[in-house]
């Protein structure tokens, strides 16, 4: 499943990068993040309670940041499972200097999802994924452009 998106930030790439990869910011902005613990450099175990409307589930998983080249690009690898199903995915994230102290963040996500939730409600999954990604970046945007921006 492809999940792509483009988000603009009113801050320079270095600043956006620092916030996007700040564990505290991640924890605050990942929708439904219950806990996030570092297990090494750029790797975390994470517990999420996410979903839409009544379709909510708790997922445990691992998140790692790979191939990080500040402030240009990084990959976020996710591997999680919960009662409603499981997810594995890679998001390739590119930060493009948009000039005038602005940054465009381009996301190319490729996720594999499975389990009962997918078998029964596959029609909801892609829009839900896109919605959650939107929530994440909007939260990040507030953080980036908030006190510091």
């Amino acid at each position: 499943m492809r999940i792509d998106g483009t988000f603009s930030f009113n801050a320079n790439p270095e600043h956006v990068w620092d916030v996007l990869l700040d564990p505290e910011a991640l924890k605050a902005c990942i929708p439904g993040c219950q806990s996030m613990t570092s297990t090494g450099e750029n790797t975390y175990v994470i517990t999420l309670t996410v979903g839409i409307a009544q379709f909510k589930g708790t997922y445990d998983g691992n998140v790692s940041i790979q191939d990080a080249h500040r402030p240009d690009r990084y990959e976020i690898h996710v591997d999680g499972k919960g009662r409603p199903g499981w997810v594995r995915g890679v998001g390739k994230i590119k930060l493009v200097d948009a000039g005038n102290g602005a940054t465009t963040v381009e996301v190319e996500g490729d996720a594999t999802i499975g389990g009962p939730v997918f078998s029964i409600g596959s029609r909801f999954v892609p829009p839900a994924a896109k919605m959650l990604m939107g929530q994440f970046f909007n939260a990040m945007k507030k953080r980036v452009e908030g006190p510091a921006g």
């Binding site: 594999t112 999802i113 499975g114 389990g115 009962p116 997918f118 078998s119 029964i120 596959s122 029609r123």
Partner: peptide, 12 residues
Amino acid sequence: ENGQLLSGSLMD
């Protein structure tokens, strides 16, 4: 392609 049955109910 991963072997998930997408038509897993009478909804599909």
